[in-house]
Design a protein around this nucleic acid. Sequence first.
DNA 1: AGGACCTCCTGTCTGC
DNA 2: TGCAGACAGGAGGTCC
Length: 289
Amino acid sequence: MPELPEVEVVRRGLQRWVAGRTVARAEVLHPRAIRRHLPGAGEFAARLEGRTIGSAERRGKYLWLPLDGGDAVLAHLGMSGQLLVAEPGSAPERHLRIRLSFTDGGPELRFVDQRTFGHVLVAPMTVRLPRRVPEPIAHIAADPFEPAFDDERFVIDLRRRRTEVKRALLDQSLISGVGNIYADEALWRARLHGARPTAALTRPKIAELLAAAREVMTEALSEGGTSFDSLYVNVNGESGYFDRSLAVYGRRDQPCRRCGAPIVRESFMNRSSYSCPRCQPRPRTPRKA
DNA sequence: AGGACCTCCTGTCTGC
DNA sequence: TGCAGACAGGAGGTCC
C-alpha cells in the first residue's frame, strides 16, 4: 500500500532517527524478510554490525541507507511493511521481522511486516551516473521527483509501449513510485480511462497525466502520506493517511467529485481500478473482447 | 524480447 | 455460529 508519498515520509523519519548511527546488532526474526539477501541471515547480520549509516535515500518505493564502506541497506515495504523506531526492550510487535540496535544505546529500528511482501537486504551500489543506486534496483526508473527524471523521455517511452496506460503507470521500469491508488487518482485528474492504449495518447495528454501524478503525490505528501489500512505507520509509529483527498480510489458508487456520476470499480490484474464512467469513458475499441 | 499473467502472504470482511 | 471465499497488491518469475 505505501506508494511514493508514504515511503518519502518514512525516508524523512529514517534520516532523522538513524542517519549517522552505528549498528550494534542485527536480528532477523523471519527468514522471508531477507529472502532477497541470498547469503542468508547470518551474513546479513555480519554485513551490518559495526557499520555506520550515512543518510536515508529513496527512489520510487525503495528506500536505502548507505553504509560506511560503500554498500547500502536496501528496503521495500511491500504491502504492509513498516519501519518503526522503538525503545530498546519495548514489547516486540506481533509481526516484527528484523531488529537493528545501535551502539549509542538509543532507539532501535524495527522492520514490521504483516503480509511479508516487503524485504530488506544489503547490497553494493552501482557506479552508474547521474545517480548511484543499490545494484538490485538498477532497473527501477527514476521517480518523477528526481532531477534525473526526464519528462520528454517519459513521453517518448510511454508512447512506444504497446499496452494500456494504467499498466504503463504501474511499470516501475518506466516511472517509479506510482502504485494502484495514485495511478487511479492521476488518471481521474487527467480524464483518462486506464484501459486507453498508450500508443494513441497525444503528447499533451501524457504531459497532463504526468503533471497529475506529480500533483496528487505532492498533495499526499503534504498531508503526511496516506494509507488506508491501519497497517501503514511512519517510521516513528505515527499513522499517516490522506483518504479525504481521494477522488476515486475506494469510492465505488459514490458521486464523482467533478460530475456526480457514480464511481465504478472494475477488476484489473486481480485487483481494483476505480474511475468515473462519465469523465473517463472506456476506449471505444477495447483491445480485448 | 516486450507484454501479460501468476504467485507470494496474512488479516479482515462478507455472505451463505 | 462458523467457515469459505473475496479482497488488499508490489514486483519478481515465468510463459508466450
